[in-house]
Design a protein around this nucleic acid. Structure first.
Length: 416
DNA sequence: TCTGGGGTCCTAGGACCC
DNA sequence: TCTGGGGTCCTAGGACCC
């Protein structure tokens, strides 16, 4: 079989680049990529963190994932911009539209990463390196942000090489280049080697990807289980999953929040849950799913995590019903520790293609109508247009979590 | 470093059935 | 009455990703 050619396209400092491109396009003269600037933070949450940073933040030693408080202490005149997820989605889609011109087989891996199968496309757009440069320059010129492109024969190697040197670069990591380009890298640069695995490998004196590749896979399996065999194969560059075009169906939907104060009161905890369930269920209904599993989780002020879930004998997308179950689960789990983080999640999703009212134990038909009416009002007039009266004097936010605010953003018409 | 929010997958143990 | 072992489902927790 002819060897495949896979591209991995990765937007450099995506959130910051996109915000910068947007501001320039709106007529601002300052490019926030050229000053110390970060994207991140939500005034409502207790500790916002750095989601993306400009290159000039490097000399202040600001790291992604660091708290804004810490970043500000290192650089007092740091510009902090809240993430604008609607903009990010638009930019991601604009990138996808460019990539689609170079291959019908592209896969979105995250909001700022795509795989593209370039196999057999040489006749149309030239050698892989040439095509990658064409794509990179087009994105820069037409969309206003830079990308890194990694080229190899599978997704794993393409992804690792897109990470080599940034920004605005094209790299290759073909199998024959593995010993020189990949094996000297620290083992934590390998995909799916996170902090826990790194710790275990370091404890056994395995520090580079090359050393991992040279380790007996059965020994790796003895302390990493099947994950050990997986990363051993990765260390040899072996991976052969296809670039899957089209949307991958989601398995679950969740919503969680770090509270701005310790929650110690049951009624308060229930209200926080409701605010999370409200947005989660709106998303659930918007996607046309019913859920058969409800889970709650929390984190105590001592940073201990707990979770509790229940499989239902029926499927539902009702805000009230899921809230009631979530409250039951919380009550069963919680022993009164002060809470600083609460989450709710639904899973076991099925498509809401047919409704069978006869199966409904309670008056779900009416509840569905109410839920949908509320969704519609919020869609037309904003999330705060209709809120539960229980929030009026509670001091809590009635709608919590990662809602994409459907505010009117001036379209980036000229570049998107 | 004192740690956000959205996900996915794996593992281990217990319950239950045959 | 006690017993084996396999399969499946369920739950909690951990690890990983961006």
């Amino acid at each position: 079989m002819k060897r495949r050619i896979i591209f991995h396209i990765d937007v450099n400092s995506a959130y910051l680049s996109w915000e910068a491109a947007y501001r320039l396009q709106q007529g601002e003269s300052l490019d926030i990529r050229t000053i110390p600037a970060v994207i991140g933070g939500d005034p409502q949450t207790r500790h916002g963190i750095v989601l993306a940073k400009s290159i000039p933040t490097k000399k202040y030693d600001i790291k992604t994932g660091e708290t804004l408080y810490s970043a500000l202490s290192k650089c007092p005149n740091l510009l902090i911009v809240r993430p604008n997820y609607l903009l990010f989605r638009q930019c991601s889609e604009a990138l996808r539209d460019v990539l689609k011109e170079y291959s019908p087989t592209i896969q979105q891996f995250s909001i700022d990463e795509y795989f593209l199968d370039y196999t057999a496309m040489e006749n149309l757009f030239g050698e892989p390196l040439q095509a990658a440069h064409t794509i990179k320059e087009r994105v820069k010129k037409e969309l206003g942000f830079t990308v890194n492109i990694g080229i190899s024969t599978n997704k794993l190697l393409a992804k690792i090489s897109s990470d080599f040197q940034k920004p605005d670069k094209v790299h290759t990591l073909f199998p024959e280049e593995i010993p020189t380009k990949m094996w000297p890298l620290p083992v934590e640069d390998l995909f799916l080697v996170g902090s826990a695995t790194t710790r275990k490998l370091h404890a056994r004196n395995i520090h580079t990807i090359g050393e991992l590749a040279g380790t007996d896979p059965l020994y790796l399996r003895s302390f990493l289980k099947s994950h050990g065999l997986l990363i051993w194969n990765y260390a040899h560059g072996r991976e052969n999953s296809p670039v899957r075009p089209g949307a991958i169906p989601i398995k679950g939907i969740g919503n969680s929040t770090t509270t701005s104060f310790d929650v110690e009161d049951l009624h308060e905890a229930h209200l926080v849950l409701l605010s999370l369930v409200e947005t989660m269920c709106t998303r659930l209904r918007h996607k046309g799913y019913l859920a058969q599993l409800v889970a709650v989780s929390f984190r105590t002020n001592e940073f201990l995590n707990y979770s509790h879930q229940r499989k239902l004998s029926f499927s539902t997308d009702s805000t009230n019903e899921i809230w009631e179950i979530a409250c039951q689960l919380l009550d069963e789990l919680w022993q009164g520790q002060p809470l600083r983080h609460l989450g709710v999640r639904v899973g076991e999703l099925c498509q809401n293609d047919f409704i069978q009212p006869a199966f409904f134990v309670r008056d779900r038909v009416k509840e569905r109508k109410i839920d949908r009416a509320i969704d519609e009002i919020r869609e037309r007039f904003g999330a705060q247009a209709i809120i539960r009266s229980s929030y009026l004097h509670s001091g809590l936010k009635p709608i919590a979590g990662g809602v994409i605010t459907e505010e009117e953003y001036p379209m980036m018409t000229s570049i998107l």
